[in-house]
């Protein structure tokens, strides 16, 4: 897993609430057997019509910002457990998602792939939306070490929560599986004691 600490970047806004995993990556694109190239089909049915023609007014089709931050309405990533959703967002180039609420499985999938889900208050989310309306080139600064997220031009800042274990994993690029393999003897002892 890639390490992650500070991300300072422009951002893409999708204000929709309850953005489900079928929108993030439709099921017909889950047929691959490797993790690569899912970004091509991120929000596929919002980016392209059925004939494969680009839908001009969709935000990702007007984005030349190389944004590393995706900002979305509450309950982001609800629905299926498909990790392909996190792979698609990461592969597209995002390293941080900001929302006021996440579905559980999406959140753990994101964390397992070096994609940081930052949960902010409704009020702060509204400030981010407003900041981009005022200036399309607005920058957000995310600092995992200090667990802070701020809007560059206004200086507005908020702290975000993440458990200490997952924070360490992201800062150091450690996977959960590394941890589990290291305690295999404890797992075997647990099995034997049952």
């Amino acid at each position: 897993m890639e390490k992650l600490n500070k991300v300072n970047s422009k951002f893409v806004v999708l204000p929709n609430e309850n953005l489900d995993t079928d929108q993030i990556i439709p099921s017909r694109f889950l047929k691959a057997t490797t993790r690569e190239a899912f970004g091509d089909n991120l929000f596929r049915d919002w980016r392209y019509d059925l004939e494969g023609k680009m839908i001009e007014d969709f935000v990702l089709n007007n984005d030349n910002s190389d944004a590393e931050i995706l900002v979305a309405g509450k309950n982001f990533g609800c629905g299926s457990s498909r990790e392909h959703a996190a792979w698609a967002i990461f592969d597209y180039g995002f390293r941080v998602v900001i929302s006021s609420f996440y579905a559980d499985i999406f959140k753990s999938n994101a964390l397992n792939n070096g994609l940081l889900p930052v949960q902010v208050s409704e009020d702060f989310l509204a400030q981010i939306f407003a900041a981009q309306e005022a200036n399309a080139d607005e920058i957000i600064n995310v600092d995992l070490e200090t667990q802070t997220v701020s809007i560059a031009s206004t200086g507005a800042q908020e702290n975000f929560e993440i458990n200490g274990y997952k924070k360490d994993c992201l800062l150091n690029g450690f996977d959960d599986i590394d941890y589990l393999i290291n305690i295999k003897e404890e797992i075997i002892a647990f099995e034997n004691a049952r």
Partner: peptide, 14 residues
């Protein structure tokens, strides 16, 4: 339900 990274964890360590 779990994601694929977790499927790998269960394969490797149960």
């Amino acid at each position: 339900g779990i994601g694929t990274s977790e499927v790998e964890q269960v394969f490797a360590t149960q």
